[in-house]
Design a protein around this nucleic acid. Structure first.
Lengths: 219, 219
DNA sequence: CCAACCTGTCACCAGCCGGTGAATAACAAG
DNA sequence: CTTGTTATTCACCGGCTGGTGACAGGTTGG
């Protein structure tokens, strides 16, 4: 029965034209990286795996091992991108405002960060990942993210210094923590601790509350 | 070869005494529920599944289907427990303090919640789960949690009302969001946005910052 | 004693996962 | 045309997952 094999190989009908995939390593690497970012942003870290990334990139998973040394390397590559990612998404200037006081600065930083996080699914997923798992993968990603963020804040800070007698590190950690959890919770459930977060108006109220908190501390 | 079967059934040696498992449905149900809570608290929601729970409970997974109707029902049972869970872990009284102002109240609530969350791995995992996934399971769990929490706050509030002109819902959402993210981040990485959160002294600083924020808004 | 019921166990399924060794197809140089 | 290199795919493995049907073993009631 030599014909049986042939049937398995190609079941008559249209020759199927296997898409004439070009041989281009750089493009493939990019496709893999894009697939990984897209998958992570859209589906979250739960179903994030070698097989899914390969499927999304339309190539064999073997290539991920070859080009990135496995999922870990791929995640690291995502982390490397994160620096520029932040720079692209959050304005680096003062937006034409004069930031006279530390309070002015922190209010602006808080609002910018809030909007940036709301607009960036990938970053949100990474933040959620960070508080859910403690693997080497996540730790590296987390480090890259916090570094990028710290750099941004430092660039914006200029020569402004916090008021004396206030533990700015502690207070700012609280403020950024609040923003992150607020946005994550809103993304998942449309609300946070009883505060609705769906309409633009809802978000205005949140922004107002945020400003109130910043100003309450820094004046 | 009828002996081969017998060998597979019992390889001679000690009769092994299969532990004389008692037949007690109530106890088994409890064992399953305990296993589920323990597993969720210790391992997180990532590896939380029927097989793992059954292994932890030392029984067959079939019983989880029988008694709880599957994982969903089991999660729901955890949620049902959550009300009493909260009551057991967070003091319901004022701790002998007189809460004169709304600011007094919120400061106390914030600090109590911070400590309670720090001390409760299960609750932390649930919070992390809430911001990571949006399935029916998690939604129900989340609802149970927020209800228990809202009830607690309401009991503590008594007749105190927030100052006029302040959106207490918004501000409080921020405060509780900050606490939750701070504790989650600390649990995973020992820090949050550059603020170290390991030693008791670190946590004192965090508490001070938290108080400063609350007082900044509510006086 | 037998029958019905309840608790618990076991064996098995299909499906997906991460991971690996070998084959294949396109291209470049000789 | 041949040879070698590189990009890409394929076939397969063991292991784990959720899910189900059949069966064994006590317990109860007639």
């Amino acid at each position: 029965m030599p014909s049986a094999n042939a049937v398995l190989k190609n079941p008559i009908e249209t020759p199927a034209e296997p898409e004439k995939r070009v041989r281009n390593r750089a493009a493939t690497e990019q496709a893999i990286l894009d697939s990984a970012k897209r998958l992570l942003a859209e589906e979250g870290f739960q179903n994030f795996g070698i097989n899914a990334v390969a499927r999304g990139a339309g190539c064999d998973k073997q290539l991920i091992y070859r080009y990135y040394g496995g999922l870990d390397g791929l995640v690291e590559a995502i982390g490397t991108d994160l620096g520029s990612w932040v720079k692209d998404r959050i304005p680096d200037d003062t937006g034409g405002m004069f930031l006279l006081t530390y309070g002015d600065l922190m209010e602006r930083l808080a609002l910018l960060f809030l909007d940036a996080l709301r607009a960036d699914p990938l970053m949100r997923r990474i933040v959620a990942w960070e508080v859910s798992e403690n693997t080497e993968q996540v730790r590296r990603l987390s480090e890259a993210r916090s570094k990028a963020l710290a750099g941004w804040i430092d660039r914006m800070r200029g020569s402004l210094t916090p008021p004396k007698g206030i533990d700015a590190v502690g207070v700012n950690a609280m403020i950024f923590a609040a923003i992150q959890h607020l946005v994550l919770s809103a993304t998942v459930s449309g609300q946070c601790a009883g505060l609705a977060l769906k309409t633009p108006k809802d978000w205005e109220k949140a922004a107002t509350a945020l400003k109130r908190i910043v100003r309450g501390v820094y004046g």
